[in-house]
């Protein structure tokens, strides 16, 4: 493949992934309201367009047309930087996720992954860690006590659960032997999904994913009954939109990562037996991956409308005193079993 073709193909793929994550994040806001309505026996948005399908568009336009208010006492540069960092980091995480195997068109192989770097998981961890800064900077720069409290809570919560998440991933890396997401997905053909080998690791990972995305039951940073809006109390217009939007993109990306790490990614047990051409299989794989992702997004919403919020000390105790020892235990057990079986 020539360099120019390579660049064009990657650019197209990048833009495609970017647009898809934006659209999914937009419609997650709609889905969230519809799911909430369904669970609470209400109707939900139904005014804009058929079944309220244009609601996200209307919300987006509203966000654009609202006045931007930057408080007098705030630090203006950081105030703008905060939501930008939050949005930016959530947009670039998708670059290492394998959305499918590869399409073979006109003698070239087009991998359905923006890039396969051999430290894929570390890239995801690194970028999500930068995401903490978006919230911390925004909350501090607002110069509002509620925002400050929200930002403090958010940052200590996210960093606490990051340790347990890292340890859960280490146990996974021990079973797969690679850090590349493509390698991990490719190894899970048939029924060899990692959830079978790492049930405890997955449990730890999904709890941490909820905490990292600030979703209920870990939504203390923006617990509206005590902190008004938490770190985004002072934000308006598209800056507020960025914070809310980044949360939904993060939800999408973490669903994609959970599906890839533990649920076989684009693999499906029966797919090899159908005798389809490689290109059809690749496209079907993308469909399966998205089905898994949508299930996890629904699961995020399901939990949100089922479980009440933790108290802050309960949250920190769960993270430090239960999840970290549990993940270290999981790691030791995994290592021991693998070594005994491979002797």
């Amino acid at each position: 493949m020539t360099l120019s073709l390579f660049i064009i193909y990657k650019a197209v793929l990048v833009i495609l992934v970017f647009l898809i994550s934006l659209v999914i994040a937009m419609y997650s806001t709609y889905a969230e309201r519809k799911v909430a309505a369904f669970m609470q026996d209400r109707i939900g948005p139904n005014r804009a367009g058929p079944f309220g399908l244009l609601q996200p568009v209307a919300d987006g336009v509203k966000m654009f047309m609202k006045e931007e208010i930057i408080p007098q006492v705030s630090n203006k540069f950081l105030f703008i930087l905060g939501p930008s960092v939050a949005m930016f980091t959530s947009c670039i995480t998708g670059a290492v996720i394998p959305w499918g195997t590869s399409l073979h068109i006109a003698g070239h192989d087009f991998a359905l992954q923006v890039t396969d770097i051999n430290i894929g998981i570390l890239y995801v961890m690194a970028v999500t860690s930068i995401g903490v800064y978006g919230i911390m900077i925004g909350g501090w720069a607002s110069n509002n006590k509620y925002s400050l409290l929200g930002a403090l809570r958010a940052s200590s919560q996210m960093i606490s659960y990051e340790v347990a998440m890292g340890l859960a991933i280490i146990a996974l890396v021990m079973t797969t032997g690679t850090l590349s997401l493509k390698g991990i997905a490719a190894a899970q053909t048939g029924w060899h999904w990692n959830i079978v080998y790492q049930p405890l690791g997955f449990l730890i990972f999904i709890i941490c994913a909820f905490a990292e995305t600030n979703r209920t039951p870990f939504d203390l940073p923006e617990s509206d009954s005590e902190l008004i809006g938490g770190y985004h109390t002072e934000y308006s217009s598209m800056k507020l939109g960025f914070y809310l939007f980044a949360e939904y993109i993060n939800m999408f990306i973490s669903s994609a990562i959970m599906s890839t790490l533990y649920f076989g990614g684009y693999n499906m047990p029966f797919i090899g037996r159908l005798g389809l051409s490689p290109n059809t299989m690749a496209i079907l794989g993308v469909v399966f991956l998205f089905a898994k992702i949508f299930f996890f997004i629904f699961f995020f919403m399901w939990v949100r409308w089922t479980i009440p919020r933790f108290r802050f000390d309960q949250l920190m105790n769960l993270g430090w005193k239960i999840l970290i020892p549990l993940s270290i235990f999981n790691m030791a057990i995994t290592g021991f079993i693998i070594l005994v079986l491979h002797k």
Binding site: I7, A11, F18, C91, D116
Partner: peptide, 16 residues
Amino acid sequence: DYLPIAITVLVAGGFV
């Protein structure tokens, strides 16, 4: 292999 990440950074940064 890191070039696509640079493209992603450009697209996301430009959008923001």
